[in-house]
Design a protein around this nucleic acid. Structure first.
Lengths: 145, 145
DNA sequence: ATGTTAATGCAATTATGTTGCAAATATAGG
DNA sequence: CCTATATTTGCAACATAATTGCATTAACAT
């Protein structure tokens, strides 16, 4: 199996980004989590390893290249998750449902759930759909019962 | 036809809120628009008529009472719209689709469009759905063509 | 090895949101 | 109409989040 860091390095090069420590660290953190990661959490984990400004810029660059996508939770806080294959700078294929757990506050990308087509009033042209469900995730609804 | 201001005053009293100038002004502004109104826009329009802090508190009170509902746009900015009848402090019936126009940036409440039921993975319990569509609104798609 | 370009870190600035408190105001009751 | 009371407002201070410019550093092509 291919080394994880190697994969990340290729990913960066493929997108014309240099292989730098903060970028690799962000990819490392994001890939190790099963749900989207909030900007404040990233900031905390990176600590003094990288400047806050650098983090902003890394995330912005990744988003532009289609390496990660941003999901806003109900409070408007930005959360980031690595895009599944098939995303690019030109087109994000992240029109899956996001699930924001009321209990643990994690945000899951439900890649398998597609957003159904929508009937909108005449004249409106839908480009993208963004659906966030809230409730209890599988983990938390287990614990509660 | 009943006077608009009278209606607003009744609305406030019904919700146990005093009839104050900033509150009436917010209702006036929101009701005069065909789309949701951003917090920064409200702040700008109210100008020196009300303090920034007061605006925050008015909006918060209105939201708690179910008089208005908040929609976050793609940038995470809060937008507010008057709730249709049937909303209350206990239950918001605002699970309609919101439409964020890429051109004019207005946010429309598409009250007529209901969010279709969703199949989620086993274990997940959906409480609320929040769907924002982006694209061109009727107005803008007219102009473009 | 080295030159060029991209990326980082720092400082300063701006924007955004929150809290405590004193002054002002709405309204209920006399 | 006047007054008592609780709510609401406005101000000041503070806290947090995001952005910009610039000098320094680091990546990497040659």
């Amino acid at each position: 199996m291919e080394n994880k860091t190697e994969r990340f390095e290729k990913l960066l090069v493929k997108n014309g980004l240099k292989r730098t420590a903060p970028r690799l660290q962000v990819l490392e953190i994001l890939s190790g989590r099963d749900s989207a990661t909030s900007q404040p959490y990233l900031e905390q984990v990176m600590g003094k390893d990288a400047d806050r400004v650098t983090l902003y810029r890394v995330l912005q660059a990744f988003e532009e290249k289609g390496i990660i996508h941003k999901v806003l939770d109900q409070q408007g806080t930005a959360n980031y998750a690595i895009c599944s294959d098939g995303c690019s700078a030109h087109e994000h294929h992240d029109e899956h449902v996001h699930f924001n757990c009321d209990n643990c506050h994690k945000i899951y990308c439900l890649d398998s759930v597609k957003i159904p087509a929508l009937k909108v009033p005449v004249g409106f042209k839908v480009e993208h759909l963004n659906l966030i469900a809230t409730g209890l995730c599988a983990n938390c609804s287990d614990k509660v019962n």
